Amino acid sequence: MKLQDFLGTQTKWNFEAIANDTDLTRQIQILLIGLYLLEPPADGKFGPISVASLKKFQELKKTGESDFLGAVTAKELIETKPEELPKPSLKLGNDIASRIVKYLLSKNYQVFTNPKEYNIVYVEGLDEDWSLNKDTPNQFNDQRILIEIVNGAPKIVNYWQATTEPGSRYTFSPMNDGGAARIKFGQYKAWAVGQHGNAERHQALVQVAPITVHRDFNKDFQRTGDKLDTGLFLINQHWGYDAPANDIKNASAGCLVGRRREGHKEFMAIIKQDRRYVANKDYVFYTTVIPGDDLMKMFPG
């Protein structure tokens, strides 16, 4: 069955019927991916995530078909272009969660708005009271933040002291001849639940897709002027072994690191409740890394 076969007919298929037709499922998934309502791949399996994405499309387009696929939905799926799709309405205030979401939207980054979909954001050079700091090298002076959209409003689920940058040890003695890795600001779909470390192995978000880093060849703890390098570098999201706030020690060679073990366990426990991970244990998470000074300049409190 194809979507075209529904046009001009009274045919109605429930979600179970769609799930039994791999070709139809894959066609629907490809179109939803093109509309940025579903993440790749189009695997032909019409599970909970695909169902939710189709229902969201039907809601946005006001098809009047909420529990089945009919001619109206089929026509809209075939004809709708991404720029024609209404955006979910967000209730944005001046709280820190709203300001971060405004920043992400201003950069055309993905913001996930469904219940139990967590937006992972690291803000560099920001203290726990949401004030800017000097972003001094070799310190845990960044924030790891989880944001969920609840009834249209961004809410901080939790946040933790973190670092997005390598410490002195690996800056002065880098693991790569080109210099220590310092992640390039931006958004990447690159991390899945896995294991990090050897001596103290623990659950973490491990890099499974390429990201871009700056190589600090001149060892000045800055991105400016550094060469870019894209690839798989084991840039994981792990814990910082309870290192002192003012000394990263050997906790980071360029990873995204939450300082405390207990805080990291909290982070992972929440991440594993994400509905996309619940549906697919191999789900690859987006993560966004942004500069605190840029955030506060664009969206001051």
Rank of each mutant, 00 (worst) to 15 (best):
S173V: 03
L54R: 06
K75P: 00
N119T: 10
Q207H: 10
L232V: 10
K297T: 08
I211Y: 07
L24R: 05
L60W: 05
E59G: 00
T136K: 14
L295Q: 06
R275W: 06
L104V: 02
D5F: 00
G179R: 05
Q143W: 01
V157G: 14
A162K: 03
I30G: 00
A190S: 15
S168R: 15
I28G: 07
Q27Y: 02
D127C: 01
D95I: 00
L90W: 11
G70W: 08
V193Q: 01
V121R: 07
I270C: 05
Y277M: 05
K265S: 01
G167Y: 12
I149A: 02
K297A: 14
N138E: 08
T136H: 08
N158T: 10
Q237L: 11
I28N: 04
V284M: 05
N176S: 15
G240A: 08
H202Y: 09
P137Y: 12
D282K: 14
K297P: 03
F233N: 08
E76I: 01
Q237P: 01
D127G: 08
E65G: 07
S252K: 07
P166I: 07
N250S: 15
K2Q: 14
L232M: 15
P82A: 13
L104H: 02
A74H: 04
A74D: 07
Y36A: 06
W13L: 15
